[in-house]
Amino acid sequence: MNPNDFQVHDIADFPLVRLMPEGLPEGYAVQWEAELEALIGQPEPFVMVVAALRGEHREAHEDRKRRSLWMKRNRDTLARRCRGMVAVEPDTGKRMIMQTQSAALAGLFKVPLRIVATTEEADRLARAFLGGADDG
């Protein structure tokens, strides 16, 4: 995989794949989908780490719909490649809400999904999902 082909995800620390949802332009889901296709099409397991949002972020309805449909169509393949998803949410109240929502999503998409308070905690958990992968 060529890191230059990735605009939505940061694969510089692969097998940790980072998503920075802040600042994604409307219509980004087309590129998001192409990048996920590349990630699930390669043999190595990976973990998604989603950065915390600073402030309010409203995702366009069409982007959210496209991502959801892709996840439903590809959930089995995604589950074979993606060992887990970890999102960062420093706000305790928001984190509790997200943890409740994530329980249903994890079952639907067959990928463990956890919400943590810090980037450091996210990285530790991501590496644990990978089976203790070396910090490298």
Rank of each mutant, 00 (worst) to 15 (best):
L130M: 12
L105N: 07
N2E: 12
A79Y: 07
I115V: 15
L19T: 15
R18W: 14
P90Q: 07
E59N: 00
A29Y: 06
I97Q: 12
V30F: 02
K110V: 03
R124L: 15
E62R: 05
V88M: 01
R95I: 02
H57K: 08
R67D: 11
W32M: 14
E35C: 11
A52V: 00
V116F: 04
T77L: 15
V17E: 08
A128M: 06
Y28D: 02
A126G: 15
L16H: 03
K72W: 09
T77N: 09
Y28E: 05
P21Q: 05
G131E: 13
F46Y: 14
T77P: 00
S68Q: 12
V86T: 07
C82K: 05
V17I: 15
D76R: 11
H9K: 09
M85G: 09
V8H: 06
E26A: 13
R54C: 00
I115G: 11
L39G: 06
M98G: 02
Q7I: 07
L108T: 09
S102W: 05
E37I: 13
L53Y: 00
I115W: 12
A87C: 13
D76F: 05
D13N: 12
A34I: 03
L78T: 13
G136R: 11
V111D: 03
N4W: 01
M85Y: 04
G23C: 04
G136T: 12
E59T: 07
E26G: 03
R114C: 14
E89D: 02
M85L: 13
D5R: 10
P112G: 10
F14W: 11
Q42W: 00
G132P: 05
R18L: 10
F129V: 08
K110T: 06
C82M: 14
D10K: 09
M20R: 13
V49H: 04
L105I: 06
P90E: 03
Q101L: 15
